[in-house]
Design a protein around this nucleic acid. Sequence first.
DNA 1: AGCATATGAATGAATG
DNA 2: CATTCATTCATATGCT
Lengths: 157, 157
Amino acid sequence: MDDIGMSGFCVKPRCGGGNGGGAGNKCGRWNPTVEQVKVLTDLFRAGLRTPSTDQIQKISSQLSFYGKIESKNVFYWFQNHKARERQKRRRVSVTEQHEIHREDRVSVSSAKHLVSINQVSGPERAMETLQLFPLNSFSESDSEKLRIVLLMIDRIS
Amino acid sequence: MDDIGMSGFCVKPRCGGGNGGGAGNKCGRWNPTVEQVKVLTDLFRAGLRTPSTDQIQKISSQLSFYGKIESKNVFYWFQNHKARERQKRRRVSVTEQHEIHREDRVSVSSAKHLVSINQVSGPERAMETLQLFPLNSFSESDSEKLRIVLLMIDRIS
DNA sequence: AGCATATGAATGAATG
DNA sequence: CATTCATTCATATGCT
């Protein structure tokens, strides 16, 4: 289900497929048709930058006419397009005023670590999600997981 | 995310990881190890969705065994994971059902079909113009994309 | 062939 | 809880 595995490398599924006709789609990642890109670009140029969920659905539906597409593709497309536009512009701005500050961004977040996250979860309504523990999650010999589960148990008891 | 549609696995080798060396973690942001992700995922699948502050602390403590981690990382992880599960649900739901083939000669009756599909967005104030867009009337002229653009304009302003 | 760029996909970190 | 931003990974494509 969720999570793509996490570890090392990517195996490319060689799908050879002969695809029929025009928009050849390999398996793997979506590759948009020229028409799809055209429409998306037009929408972007028209001023649409962050489409809502409904808009994404509609756009995706319309674009499916040209070929296989999912909502998430539209979502990612706009995210990336916007981000990269900003990215480019950022580089240009930095370049034009040749600031020698080749800053390292690492130091910025240091102070924030001290701020605890207590603000988010209120004291009341503390646990309600934990009760549904199935207790079958440790089918294997994952001792660490078991340990955590046991540590959590005391909270609900 | 969920299955990416391919059979392969992906893992990203990043800095951090439980690897050797005290390798300097150049990343400013937390990079979970595979074990950490595994435990977190397991907890999530076990039903934990919104851990309390105490739970976050405990989980973080346990996970610190595998590598550098802070409470806020755990907090964010659950937030993101939950949000994206729901988001994904939403995106996949509507889009998948209609594969439209351009070769299909859709007759008059298809209009109702399209309406019924897209009606999921909202009862009132349904942008009928967009939904009644007949996907079969034109092949590759610019009219469709122009229409889409024009229909979206009202939303972006 | 190898490198460079473009871009789809993913996710950590926030913010409202 | 949703939405957004930033950064990174992965791959497809193009160029030399």
